[in-house]
């Protein structure tokens, strides 16, 4: 009996070799998963009504539009300045107020800093709801309730920010080492005092970093919430579009691009320094 099985000598087995494991049967599960995915995709194909012909037809009718889109009219720049400024103002105000208000709420929404179970549950539920409503929907509603303009924009950004910040910061609090808090409580401090003195410093760097991130998101969001009337560049987009001024439209979009990219650069540079 040879020690090493030569190719082809299929019957030869090493002495002492145990039974070979049978190949695990993973494929049935995989086939099922794949079938489900294909089925969902087929359903979505039908539901969104894929019709390439119509698209192609519309596209060929839009020669003029396309030409204009690729030739931004820079003389329009002066008129975009005011909306551009408003966009930035809305983002700054929304971020400032949203992040300020979210700080105490985050402490109420973390198990580590809020010993009151029912209150904790309530705050978390409300914040989950607040977070699952998109910014543009807030904007549409506020525009109807308080009228078009920057106030609607600021209010929707504010709620949008609350949702994000409270989630991020309360999760950060959940992960913080609670030794300092225990010591403060053991020295006779109230929960509020202990959270402020021992927990706040631990999340402060993350808080600053997330605030910058939220500012970045807000600049992005505040360029578009104007589409439903909530002030800023979005309102301008809506206006030039309804008048088919596509060479203006492309300029505005170009500005948004530059603004967002600039802020992204700034934000990632600052955040990199913060997280030492």
């Amino acid at each position: 009996m040879s020690a090493v099985a030569a190719p082809g000598a299929s019957a030869a087995r090493l002495p002492g070799a145990g039974a070979r494991p049978s190949r695990p049967r993973r494929w049935p599960a995989r086939v099922v998963v794949l079938a489900v995915l294909v089925a969902i995709t087929a359903w979505s194909w039908v539901a969104v009504d894929v019709d390439l012909a119509v698209i192609a037809h519309n596209f060929s009718n839009a020669q003029n539009t396309l030409v204009q889109l690729f030739q931004p009219d820079y003389s329009f720049f002066g008129e975009t300045l005011q909306p551009l400024l408003e966009t930035i103002q809305m983002a700054v105000i929304g971020t400032a107020v949203g992040c300020a208000v979210s700080l105490p709420l985050s402490f109420l929404a973390s198990r580590a800093t809020n010993p009151n179970g029912p209150l904790l549950g309530f705050v978390r539920t409300v914040m989950n709801v607040v977070r699952s409503i998109p910014d543009l929907l807030y904007a549409s509603i506020f525009v109807t309730v308080v009228g078009t303009g920057a106030l609607s924009g600021v209010l929707s950004l504010f709620l949008f920010n609350l949702g994000i910040m409270v989630k991020l910061i309360s999760e950060a609090l959940d992960g913080v080492d609670r030794g300092g808090q225990e010591a403060a409580l053991a020295s006779g401090a109230t929960w509020l005092q202990a959270d402020r003195a021992a927990m706040l410093p631990e999340v402060a760097p993350q808080y600053v970093s997330q605030t910058i991130y939220v500012l970045e998101l807000n600049i992005r969001a505040s360029t578009v919430i104007g589409l439903v009337g909530a002030g800023g560049l979005g309102m301008l987009i809506d206006r030039v579009r309804t008048f088919y001024q596509y060479h203006y439209l492309s300029l505005v979009i170009l500005e948004i691009l530059v603004l967002v990219l600039l802020l992204e650069l700034l934000s990632s540079a600052v955040r990199k320094r913060l997280v030492r």
């Binding site: 300092g180 020295s187 006779g188 401090a189 509020l192 005092q193 003195a197 410093p201 631990e202």
Partner: peptide, 26 residues
């Protein structure tokens, strides 16, 4: 059990929290 991201002095002052009004500690 120190708060690691703040100063030593602030940590020692935690011992004074009980005698400090809430607004001051905030």
């Amino acid at each position: 059990n120190l708060a690691r991201r703040t100063t030593v002095l602030n940590n020692v002052l935690v011992g004074r929290l009980h005698h400090t009004p809430t607004w001051r500690s905030l």
